[in-house]
Amino acid sequence: MLKITDLKVNYGGIEAVKGISLEVPEGEVVTLIGANGAGKSTTLRTIAGLVKPAGGRVEFMGEDITGKDPTSIVKKGITLVPEGRKIFPDLTVLENLKIGAYMRKDDLTDDLNWVYDLFPRLKERHWQAGGTLSGGEQQMLAVGRALMSRPKLIMMDEPSLGLAPLIVRGIFDIIREIHKQGVTILLIEQNANMALQAADMGYVMETGRITLSGPGQELLTNEAVKAAYLGA
């Protein structure tokens, strides 16, 4: 579904991504793990069109989308859940969700109900300002907002960031649930254990390069990954 070939990105004068290739097959959860500054977020931001690549190729459903603007990329069905949630704090939960569907002009009722079914908490609080939600609820809102654009591929940038372990488990349950409903997911995580358990396919990224890849379960038992990311 999404195919990246030899992608290079310069970010503030630094070569943040030094030619990576990866593939996200339709209907799968693919995760990209790695330490801080490995270039994971930059990769996602480049796919979303927020950063222009210096070289390489991004293909989505057989179409070249390299360097396209974010508006047309969202229209094609790729949505990013940004790092640190980035919900709109002064807008209500409902308004936040509606902005997620900004590129669509059709009826939103079904999708609103879908998101409310996934996150009943958001329905309870639909009139509340986004900024008054707890961290976990804000993450739910960020995911719900992205789902409102009815994406084919949803990219999540560290959804577990700054959340309590119990909440993190809840977030991963939701990721599995969304996946079950047919949305393809590209997930970035520092919480390698949780991410690899949920993923069909995993890539390990180090200083701008992909150093290791394989099925999620396989990477979980890989000695090098264990030593570097799983703390075992």
Partner: peptide, 17 residues
């Protein structure tokens, strides 16, 4: 709504398309 989204967070607004 889009105007308010830009006010609140430009990056998130851009990511929403």
């Amino acid at each position: 709504r889009a105007f308010k989204a830009i006010r609140e967070d430009e990056i998130a607004a851009e990511a929403m398309g």
